[in-house]
Nucleic acid binder design. Structure first.
Lengths: 189, 189, 189, 189
DNA sequence: GATGAATGAGGATTCATTCAT
DNA sequence: GATGAATGAATCCTCATTCAT
């Protein structure tokens, strides 16, 4: 709780966003009321509207400022010259960790993606960017002669979507098994 | 609209369930009001409560009577003696079709899975059952010598989760590419 | 459950009235729904309206056909030539028993007396009649020289009202103590 | 309608409680809707829930803040050394006046005592306390030699219950007649 | 910056009643 | 006599939002 006025303001903002994320994530965006958020943040309802134009703006702020995208980019900026057998398990494990570390946000995506276009856009961005970045890496490995020609988006989908669903549903994911199968295939001999 | 009274009653029930599925799927379970459902079904709100105990009961009825489970079972009861290279693409394509054919239900799962335990249970059942059935088939193919030893649940997750997410998000899925990669692997040579 | 049609009809009527009395008494007239009554009677809602014009008519029927009035009259038709010291305790004890024996009806009076004029009328009738009958007896005893001149309605009120309230509230009543005090007075010597 | 904000708030609260008391008393607690209360108080329905958690909380507030108990206590704190022939008529007349002065509250008790445990508790408290206080006084008069040994609760019941019922039913009560009979008895000579 | 009183529309649900079968 | 499908109005309550203080 900083002393300076302007710092206190931004601190309050962050505090509200954090509370909003956990409340929205906990009960679902629709089911959560602004009163819930206000109480969780320890402020009055009125103050919420001092910092955010409304509920939707608060949702957007949570996605924009707590979204997975920046970390996802860093995670998938895999060194293009390291072998897939090393990089892929790392990437999948990292993505799993990223998702489970911020389950409330994932809950927001799950519950709000349908009705709220803003939330949906946030979810779509994550998937599209993940698919793109992972695809780039795979293409590079094909060029390097490690992997043979294939449809990179299919691999990206299989990897990222399974992480997404397992995180959302609380299932266990096994990055090593998945990547191993993908690289060596299932066929005998 | 049948003539006999008892038939009309069951017909009404079905009609309400269908309307509920599309309304819930369209706006999300939380955002959709019982009034919406009533109007979509062309009945009064009161009648909804003559057939269903409440909103939740209606949701449960939609899941129970329009759920993917029966068709999923039929779909995945793949002949254990046919090769994976044939069966897997069929299964994935079939699952894709099954999901996209009933997008409203998928929307319900997406929007309601978080807050409503009943919906979540329905979604979990679909995933668990799919994983189990597909796993059984793969194990049989390992025994038959077509595939080498592996973790079947990892394959099932990659296949089914990617179908799930692509259907939900309206992305395109390529069953043939996915299964081909899984069987032959990505590694060069 | 009699065989003949007309008997069955009257039997049903009684059955409905009994169920209505206990349901109305149990939850209060307002809080009890016609559905509650129908279920308690083991009939459909529709049939209720075959026998009674509506909820109010059912309430009136319960009061008219299960009311305290007939028994109250029999009870208070005390032999005018028997001494008050004998009659009064009998009467009060009898009234207490009458009230507690049909608590549901008492509950109806309590909960419905205010809003529903019909119920209120029923309650007023019981009180007025009790006051009148008891007053007559007391006047006779004054004439017989057993009691001195007094206001009979005051005695009736003290006796009957205390029975009413104690029955309603589930308190214990002591008829012998009350009547003894009334007859001999509280004053020392 | 005070100027300061905090005063206005408490004023509103009182105003709502008053309106609630008269509305609940007028139509009965069950029959009266929150809308009725809101209109009577000249506020919107929503505001009711700003001040009170719900209908029941409002009922409880009315009983707690407008109940008879405080005044009843003051009334029955009769000087233990004054003779019963003086005190008793005063007390009964005072109780009569107290009850008739706040008929709406009495109506609430009458109509709501059955279903609502909170209301019932309020009514029971009034009766129990009245019985206790009056009993204490009578015991003191026995000790003073004015009255002979007797069951005080029987006297209290006869006095208070008859006042209660006559007030509820709008009957006339004659405090002097009642107390005179109680003190001197009915028996001739 | 911060409060909380106030609003008005909308939510799920219940209910007495009717009527075709 | 009996059924139960159907109605529409009413009920309690919640919510996002505004604004004077």
């Amino acid at each position: 709780m900083p002393a300076k006025r302007s710092e206190l303001a931004t601190w309050r903002r962050e505090q509200i966003i954090d509370s909003a994320m956990s409340v929205f994530g906990g009960k679902g965006v629709d089911a959560a009321s602004m009163k819930d958020v206000a109480m969780a943040a320890g402020v009055t309802q009125g103050l919420l509207y001092h910092y955010f134009a409304g509920k939707e703006a608060l949702v957007v702020a949570v996605i924009a400022e707590r979204g997975f995208l920046p970390e996802l980019r860093r995670l998938l900026s895999a060194a293009a010259d390291r072998p897939a057998s090393e990089v892929l398990p790392e990437v999948v494990a990292g993505f799993d960790k990223l998702l489970t570390a911020r389950t409330p946000l994932l809950g927001m995506f799950l519950s709000g993606a349908h009705g709220n276009p803003k939330i949906r856009a946030g979810l779509e961005a994550v998937i599209a960017e993940g698919q793109r970045l992972l695809g780039e890496y795979l293409t590079a490995r094909v060029a390097a002669g490690e992997l043979h020609e294939h449809e990179p988006s299919a691999v990206a989908q299989m990897l990222l979507c399974s992480s997404l669903v397992t995180a959302v549903m609380g299932l266990s994911s096994d990055p090593r098994a998945k990547t191993s199968i993908l690289i060596h295939g299932l066929a005998a001999t």
